[in-house]
Simulated scan of single mutants.
Amino acid sequence: MSTTQSERLRGLLEPLVAARDLDLEEIEVTPAGKRRVLRIVVDSDEGVQLDACAELSRAVSEKLDASDAMGGAPYVLEVTSPGADRPLTEPRHYHRATGRLIKAQLVDGGELVARITAVDDEGLDLEVPGVKGRKATTRRVAFGEIAKARVEIEFNRKAADTSAAAADDESQEEA
């Protein structure tokens, strides 16, 4: 997708996304046979529900039909939330991953697997798991020290973490 088309689509769609308290994470147009696929990735601090994607998809479709932003060629519209393996690139991504285990490639060439305990404007506070019975340690990492990072999927999270998550889910249901 050309930069000009990307900028035009972003300018056209960002107000629709923001009006629903969502962040426009990515816009991608890819060829698919005789058609193209327009994929719009949105997220929020609370996550994105299927109904929100469906509502946004209808609004985006109407907006695109009323403009010439996609040209005359047919396209398929997909509105989705980011996958679990998406890269963490913005401070808000790290904030949303607080409490999660991440794998980060550092600018100096090192690699770090640690749990995010806090995030501020400058960087992250991390808990680095202990190895071979050693206690976990804490570490501060500035955003500028991180070359790339992703959330690590955990299938067997510590019991204390899952019970805290369950208690959090119960308190949200009561609200």
Rank of each mutant, 00 (worst) to 15 (best):
1 M>F: 00
2 S>M: 02
3 T>E: 00
5 Q>M: 00
5 Q>P: 05
8 R>T: 00
9 L>M: 00
10 R>I: 00
10 R>S: 01
11 G>S: 04
11 G>K: 00
13 L>A: 04
14 E>C: 02
14 E>V: 00
16 L>N: 03
18 A>M: 02
20 R>Q: 09
20 R>S: 03
20 R>H: 10
21 D>I: 01
23 D>P: 05
24 L>F: 00
25 E>Q: 06
27 I>T: 05
29 V>K: 07
29 V>C: 12
39 R>D: 07
41 V>R: 13
44 S>Y: 02
44 S>I: 05
46 E>R: 11
46 E>D: 15
46 E>A: 12
47 G>D: 08
48 V>I: 13
49 Q>A: 13
52 A>N: 05
53 C>R: 11
53 C>L: 05
54 A>R: 14
55 E>H: 15
55 E>A: 10
58 R>K: 13
59 A>M: 03
60 V>G: 01
60 V>Q: 02
60 V>H: 06
63 K>F: 00
71 G>C: 07
73 A>W: 02
74 P>Q: 12
74 P>I: 02
76 V>L: 13
77 L>R: 08
78 E>S: 07
79 V>T: 09
80 T>A: 11
81 S>I: 01
83 G>W: 03
84 A>G: 06
84 A>H: 09
85 D>P: 08
85 D>E: 15
85 D>Q: 09
85 D>F: 06
88 L>P: 09
89 T>A: 09
92 R>S: 15
92 R>K: 12
97 A>S: 15
98 T>V: 12
100 R>N: 07
101 L>E: 09
102 I>P: 10
106 L>T: 09
108 D>F: 07
109 G>Q: 08
111 E>S: 13
114 A>W: 02
116 I>V: 10
117 T>F: 01
118 A>W: 01
123 G>N: 07
128 V>T: 11
131 V>S: 15
133 G>I: 01
134 R>Y: 06
137 T>N: 05
139 R>D: 10
139 R>Q: 15
144 G>C: 08
145 E>S: 12
146 I>K: 15
146 I>V: 10
147 A>R: 13
147 A>V: 08
148 K>Q: 13
148 K>Y: 14
148 K>N: 14
150 R>W: 06
152 E>C: 04
156 N>T: 07
156 N>D: 12
158 K>F: 01
160 A>F: 07
161 D>K: 14
165 A>V: 08
168 D>R: 15
169 D>N: 07
171 S>L: 12
173 E>Y: 04
175 A>W: 01
